[in-house]
């Protein structure tokens, strides 16, 4: 015993003391148990945080799918099959709009003609001229469709021309972009006899069969009547910020072909 290095006997006895302290002193015992719990608890929580973050994209995807499903079953997106001759009391709804969730993989807001790219293409059922919306507004219209990707003509594009209406009275006009900034657009063709006020809500009309009707697009920021002009000059504040759009829904109008054919036949007759 007396020949071993004194550091070892010291360390040995200290360990023994530690054991005795924790074993026989209530305070120290509590502190020891508590702090080890604190340590392992904190470690477990930190680990959990990291794992949660890593799982997040997957969770988001599934939530988006869920959202698309739920949105498709909303009444506003169903076509009322209202046959007046044979009035059936139950099951009167036929689905008109379906939604394809997509992620924005590239986006621009500073150019004259801004274009977005989405990560869904023809394999997911995307077609040209489909509308693209996001939770709080409209994004644009699908332009080119590849197998797995599609480009979207953003609202912020000189080619973009969206039909929107004043929610208050239903008068509609065209929403165009004039290179100002990604939050502001102009509303054209609102005649001067209509009452327009600052803060009026603008919604999609559904006339073009691209977007479902009733989506809030933005609000009127200013409306002026130039002398000698029959139409208002209206500045619109968009409801959504296209500068940070990440997840969108592509709108698929299931009754589009029928409508187009019908309208074509109508124009032949004229």
């Amino acid at each position: 015993m007396l020949n071993i290095p004194h550091f070892f006997s010291f360390a040995l006895l200290e360990l023994l003391c530690f054991y005795l302290i924790i074993q026989y002193n209530q305070n120290q015992r509590d502190i020891f148990l508590n702090s080890s719990n604190l340590f392992t608890g904190t470690l477990a929580r930190k680990y959990n945080d990291v794992v949660t973050v890593l799982r997040l994209p997957k969770v988001l995807d599934s939530i988006q799918l869920e959202n698309a499903r739920l949105k498709a079953s909303l009444k506003e997106n169903l076509y009322v099959q209202n046959d007046s001759a044979t009035r059936v009391q139950d099951s009167v709804y036929l689905q008109q709009y379906a939604f394809i969730p997509a992620r924005v993989v590239s986006n621009s807001i500073t150019l004259h003609n801004n274009i977005l790219t989405l990560d869904k293409g023809s394999t997911s059922g995307v077609e040209q001229d489909m509308g693209v919306i996001m939770p709080n507004g409209v994004v644009g219209v699908v332009d080119q469709v590849g197998k797995y990707y599609a480009t979207v003509i953003s609202l912020l594009n000189s080619k973009s021309n969206t039909s929107v209406a004043l929610k208050r009275n239903g008068y509609f006009g065209n929403l165009v972009w004039n290179d100002s900034d990604p939050l502001h657009m102009s509303l054209e063709a609102i005649p001067k006899h209509v009452r327009v006020e600052r803060g009026d809500t603008l919604i999609t009309t559904g006339y073009s069969a691209i977007y479902p009707s009733g989506i809030v697009v933005g609000t009127v920021e200013s409306a002026t009547l130039e002398p000698g002009n029959n139409f208002y000059t209206i500045t619109v504040l968009l409801n959504n910020d296209l500068a940070n759009v990440q997840y969108v829904m592509i709108v698929k109008n299931l009754l589009k072909e029928d409508r187009q054919e019908t309208e074509k036949e109508g124009s032949h007759d004229q």
Partner: peptide
């Protein structure tokens, strides 16, 4: 240290300090 700890009813506390001092 153990003798003192027995009187203090704090087994190990004085002992660990005194062993450290001796070391």
């Amino acid at each position: 240290g153990m003798t003192i700890d027995v009187f203090y009813n704090s087994i190990g506390v004085h002992t660990s300090a005194l062993v450290f001092t001796a070391f």
